[in-house]
Nucleic acid binder design. Sequence first.
DNA 1: TATGAATGAGCATTCATTCAT
DNA 2: AATGAATGAATGCTCATTCAT
Lengths: 184, 184, 184, 184
Amino acid sequence: MPKVVDADQRRSELATAAARVIARDGIDGASLREVAAEAGWTTGALVHYFANKRELLAFTLQSSLDQRRSRHAVRAAMTSCETLRTTLLEALPTTDENRLHWIVTLAFAAQAAGDTELAEIQRMAYRGFRSRVASLVDDPDGPAAEREAERLIALVDGIALQALFDPDLWTPRRQIEALETGLG
Amino acid sequence: MPKVVDADQRRSELATAAARVIARDGIDGASLREVAAEAGWTTGALVHYFANKRELLAFTLQSSLDQRRSRHAVRAAMTSCETLRTTLLEALPTTDENRLHWIVTLAFAAQAAGDTELAEIQRMAYRGFRSRVASLVDDPDGPAAEREAERLIALVDGIALQALFDPDLWTPRRQIEALETGLG
Amino acid sequence: MPKVVDADQRRSELATAAARVIARDGIDGASLREVAAEAGWTTGALVHYFANKRELLAFTLQSSLDQRRSRHAVRAAMTSCETLRTTLLEALPTTDENRLHWIVTLAFAAQAAGDTELAEIQRMAYRGFRSRVASLVDDPDGPAAEREAERLIALVDGIALQALFDPDLWTPRRQIEALETGLG
Amino acid sequence: MPKVVDADQRRSELATAAARVIARDGIDGASLREVAAEAGWTTGALVHYFANKRELLAFTLQSSLDQRRSRHAVRAAMTSCETLRTTLLEALPTTDENRLHWIVTLAFAAQAAGDTELAEIQRMAYRGFRSRVASLVDDPDGPAAEREAERLIALVDGIALQALFDPDLWTPRRQIEALETGLG
DNA sequence: TATGAATGAGCATTCATTCAT
DNA sequence: AATGAATGAATGCTCATTCAT
């Protein structure tokens, strides 16, 4: 019997390593060699888990998006109270982890301009997030819920983008203040 | 007598070509060969205008940001009336040209995470834009002007980001509506 | 008790699979993975039967040559009558099986130019065939027997080579006609 | 103005180097690195002359076949006398040069089994040779001319194949004797 | 015996860069 | 100024081989 390996976990490890490399060196710095080294493996080992680079990148994006959502879900479950405010706050790049997610998202956003598969993954994640936010606004079933969700997400995204461009200016505290102001 | 060439104009042409390639193929699809071909030149010709690839990319980003600003300045001068509303509207990816600028911006945003030179260029452009917006709000010299400018830019950026991720949903008309709503 | 496996038979199976792959994809398309897959095994299983790739290839050649001879011997035994004519006819690539043998032979012929082991295997097979043919000519013990055998083998090989290069032109029927003409 | 290079000559040089490597190491030993090194270049230089490996290999085969023919044409022109005998004699692997051509031909013969482009090149060369031989037989316009040409080519090929398999036995002298005998 | 994880070298190919012309 | 030949390093990927299970 061959060595037993948890393939899913290994794929996740590799995707996390890929995310780190992308955040550090940009998406074109994310060579298979570099990703493998970051994860503590050799290039050849990647091949057991991803048929090619495209697959690795798509999985990395998907993984980053999933993780963001699932971490939040866990926290919501723990506190038994998912409010609009906490949901939006957690989307801001106020922690190293969130900053990583955001940089990866942006790296793929540009890439997705010419890649329909990546574009689709991001589109789906975006729509999912909007639904979640819409379900948390004051009148979730009202006609304006979706629009309110969009407004709030725009607010969060706008703050996040500025924070990523100018991190010295945009401390976590300031990001949060800006969000609170926007929430009214 | 050597051929007279307007070096600055040539650099701009090449930067524009680079922007198109980046938007089409991603930043890692922007090889010198490809950029040169897009501009109608050979690789070797690039070398007279940019010492290396880094310089070309930095200039491409700078150029894209400058162009955005100067085009707007021209239009403001023509109408002799730069209002907050027109300034913000013109920042949205409602036209092909603006979409191109946005994709380039995002492509470099991710890259800038690990490149201080690119980061600095973007930071400066951002701060310049904030000053301009701040000078157009109701009470430009009041203590809240900067914060209001940040709020408005966050609004524009947030709408733009969603529009880039989901262009089918976010028609130009909807982007504008969302902005007007936010403007109050 | 370990599973009982007929190692010799397994080696033959694998050699046959290798021959098929070589005929289909050329000798450089015959990777261990591909050969193993063709035989319905995994790469690692090969290692029990062949120490390395060289050994597999050498055995494949040997096997192809042996098989050709043994099949003919069987047929000769059944009919109790091995004539010069049937022996030579059976060497032509008139059937799929024989074509396979021929392509394998040619693939290794080129390879053998720089590999003394393969060259030796082929040389021995050639000499064996010549002896057999020589024993079937009119005056097997006469001084001209060997030369006559060489002439006949050259005839068969020449027809075979043309047939392999231009199979549409060289139908089985035409190959046989050309041989009969040459036999006089 | 860039350095002037005779591209056709360079392609020929490279093809000759490729032929030498193929004869020495087999077709799967003919890596671009090895071919480039044999020709005294680096891998990257190949790219100026051949878009990819396939193109290099196809050109190498074509080149080997062309060369064989043109060398013969030159000699025929010099002596102003192309006879059946000299034409066939020159096809035998009696010299190092001819042996090289033959080994290359065989290497590609096996490869051509699964590659229609290579197969077509060889088929055309074969048919050309047959026409030439047919035009030199006793009654070139008679109905049997083609068949006689095929018989003679089979004779040459058959001798050549045996000579390649068993060079020690098949000295140039013996090859020639065998051919003369067959010519009658 | 057989698997498949893992290695590390090697492959074809692309690329930024240099340079003679 | 501009070309394109040439380099050599890097890339994504394949492979023979080793080995724990």
